[in-house]
Design a protein around this nucleic acid. Structure first.
Length: 177
DNA sequence: TATTGGATCGCC
DNA sequence: GCGATCCAATAG
């Protein structure tokens, strides 16, 4: 949280600060894509931490996750919102919106803004020059990160109630309240 | 092989 | 509130 997500595209660094995330953790989490085992889609979740898991949702949007656990323990963090930092003009063009707050405030929006698609699925962010995370030293205020139930996972039964969505409480750049 | 529905978004 | 739009997952 608070770190910079950097997308290097055609020589430009498109950058946003991470303001909202969700955790999807292992085989026992009914909302996790890996809950029912390894498939062609989710296989990178079973790999090493630090790799990107990118998938297509609703036929038209991409979601970006970062794998977080050891090999064969499928878990990832979904990046749900960013605060725009660099190459904002490029974000406007990619998103086809005139509203600043609509550039990156949602998982499908930020992948458009940063031009992240499934070509980056499996990309190792610890080695990549196309997509990576950096810490610029700016600290998120202690205690300002709050949690809530995850968005759009009502199908997950009791796991839909887990407080595994995290966001910076005083940020304008979260996907919803 | 056929059907179903989704970790969303933007317009009505 | 609803349709877009594709494909992974699962049922047949």
């Amino acid at each position: 949280m608070g770190k910079l997500l950097v997308r290097k595209w055609r020589g430009k660094n498109i950058i946003g600060r991470i303001m909202e995330t969700e955790s999807y953790v292992g085989r026992n989490d009914a909302a996790c894509h890996a809950a029912k085992g390894k498939t062609k889609r989710n296989e990178v979740m079973f790999g090493e931490a630090g790799c990107a898991y990118v998938y297509l949702i609703y036929g038209m949007y991409h979601c970006l996750n970062i794998v977080t656990e050891r090999k064969d323990f499928p878990a990832a963090v979904l990046i749900r919102s960013l605060e725009p930092v660099e190459e904002v003009d490029l974000m406007y063009m990619s998103r086809k919106t005139k509203v600043f707050k609509n550039l990156t405030t949602g998982p499908g929006k930020l992948t458009q803004a940063l031009r992240v698609t499934r070509t980056l699925n499996g990309e190792d962010l610890t080695l990549s020059d196309k997509l990576f995370v950096v810490n610029d030293g700016l600290k998120v205020k202690p205690g300002s990160v709050v949690s809530s139930p995850r968005v759009g996972v009502d199908y997950a039964g009791k796991d839909a109630k887990l407080m595994w969505r995290y966001y910076v409480n005083d940020s304008e750049f979260v996907s919803k309240v």
